[in-house]
């Protein structure tokens, strides 16, 4: 049945995702044909972009470790670049900014190498100490603290946090003797649940609930939307966890809840940043979606938290 050099579980999981996309595309085609007077451009763009995202994602998890880390490292690079394009930077920091970019390939190299100890401290310790030093050598003190902090915050979210998703790929496989510890499936679990949670939160929030959960940041988010979304994600986690990961049913449900709640937090934290900077979307990279950070915002929280949850319990 499975003609590709990937595990059967991954193959069937990808088939399901493919079916969902085909369903979405054909639904829009039918809707556009039935109601031609309405404007379907944005929805159409959004689904077309989803095809691209899934294609890149499949490439990122199903060939080999080197390809995976190149693709995911490039995604971090794009996210970091989008972040730096948005925030104010000082002209004098030209070289420190280049050094900060250099942290991306280095961080992903530690992952490729499987050096956990370095992976986990490289950005929080070494990059954190090095970049201000490099800035001091230039000697511009005007706006120093602000420049150093925004730079480090960007590295922590777009490179350090996101790279946890990549580290899932190099965790030792088969910890439970069940052949279920495949890294690609762990990434699949994390990403599917996180993206599903975004949609579930939105749909629940649209359909019920009046009490705003955090009106100053996101006026459209309701308590019911948040709870409904998190519970739906918990359910999906409960169903997928035992299939895709080495986790027991109880732990799978907990992981689902964790992703549901922290995905929401990642979303609103990035919303707060965008609101602070006065933009609606973080960029234009993904037609119909906005920028790449608009798509990865929840993952900046769910990736490290799910990673450590899983690692503590199973590795």
């Amino acid at each position: 049945m499975n003609p590709f050099p990937i595990s059967d579980v991954l193959f069937y999981a990808l088939c399901v995702i493919f079916a969902v996309l085909v369903f979405a595309s054909s639904t829009i085609a039918v809707l556009g044909w039935r109601f031609p007077q309405k404007d379907w451009l944005e929805l159409r763009q959004r689904v077309r972009t989803w095809w691209w995202i899934v294609a890149v994602f499949v490439l990122a998890i199903s060939v080999n470790r080197t390809i995976s880390l190149l693709v995911l490292g490039f995604v971090s690079f794009l996210a970091f670049k989008e972040y730096l394009t948005l925030v104010p930077t000082r002209r004098t920091d030209h070289l420190p900014l280049l050094w900060a970019y250099l942290a991306v390939p280095i961080q992903y190299f530690w992952i490729w190498d499987g050096w956990y100890g370095m992976f986990i401290i490289f950005i929080p310790v070494y990059a954190f100490l090095f970049l201000p030093m490099r800035m001091v050598l230039i000697g511009d003190t005007q706006g120093f603290l602000r420049a150093a902090s925004t730079l480090h915050w960007g590295l922590m979210t777009t490179v350090f946090s996101l790279s946890h998703m990549a580290y899932l790929l190099v965790l030792p496989t088969d910890v439970t003797g069940s052949m279920k510890g495949d890294g690609a499936l762990l990434v699949l679990f994390l990403v599917v649940l996180t993206q599903f949670n975004d949609v579930a939160q939105y749909l629940w929030g649209k359909s019920l609930g009046r009490a705003k959960i955090i009106p100053k940041v996101s006026p459209n988010k309701t308590v019911a939307g948040m709870l409904g979304g998190a519970l739906t994600t918990t359910l999906l986690g409960l169903m997928l966890g035992p299939v895709l990961t080495p986790m027991s049913m109880a732990h799978s449900a907990m992981a689902g809840l964790l992703i549901g709640v922290t995905g929401f937090i990642g979303d609103v934290v990035m919303s707060a940043v965008k609101r602070d900077l006065g933009v609606k979307d973080s960029g234009d990279l993904l037609p119909g979606h906005g920028g790449i950070l608009d798509r990865l915002d929840s993952l900046t929280y769910t990736a490290p938290l799910f990673f450590h949850f899983l690692r503590y319990l199973y590795y």
Binding site: N220, V279, G288, G290
Partner: peptide, 13 residues
């Protein structure tokens, strides 16, 4: 395009 708020940064895509 880079600076002015255009509304709530909200709806998921």
């Amino acid at each position: 395009l880079a600076e002015e708020p255009k509304g709530a940064p909200d709806a998921p895509r």
